[in-house]
Amino acid sequence: MKRLSEERTKVLFQKLSQYIGSNVKLLIERPDGLYCFREQKDRVYYVAEKVLKFGESIPPEQLVSVGTCFGKFTKTNKFRLHITALNYLAPYAQNKIWVKPSMEQQFLYGHNVTKAGLGRISEATEKFQGVLVYSMSDLPLGFGVAARTTLECKHADPLAVVCFHQADIGEYIRSESDLL
């Protein structure tokens, strides 16, 4: 378990700011204590200082997970968010997409959101911006990348993709063994 290098920290924050914008600060400046990011086997964990102290007493080779896994760095040094980060991103989300009940299952099986399944979309969503995907009853389902701006969505045909799938809570079942 080690601190993220400056380069990787930058990559991580850039990715997070795509989803929650300037709210990234709130992940670090928390009133309830110190929180930090730690790296273990290319995976990034969001850990409270308290938990970190316990975690540091375990040899790194034997440590499976500590805190919450936010995602992992690929071999090309890009950051991939995992679904486990959803709980921390959902409250701060700036751009949201609500999907209709008919689209919900499709999305949870790992498909993109089409215009037909789009219930609502937050205003001024940019193209290729990270968005949080909610069900119509405001339950966060996962996140993706907006394929079109809000305005473009209005004119899109029903089968056009509105949001590219990135992660969904169906992964808790589908890739149970990979998640940490």
């Binding site: 400056e6 920290t9 930058k10 924050f13 914008g21 300037s22 990234v24 600060k25 670090i28 400046e29």
Partner: peptide, 12 residues
Amino acid sequence: RDHNLQIIDSVL
């Protein structure tokens, strides 16, 4: 934490 905040500021 302060260092991270600096990085965030530069990113934003």
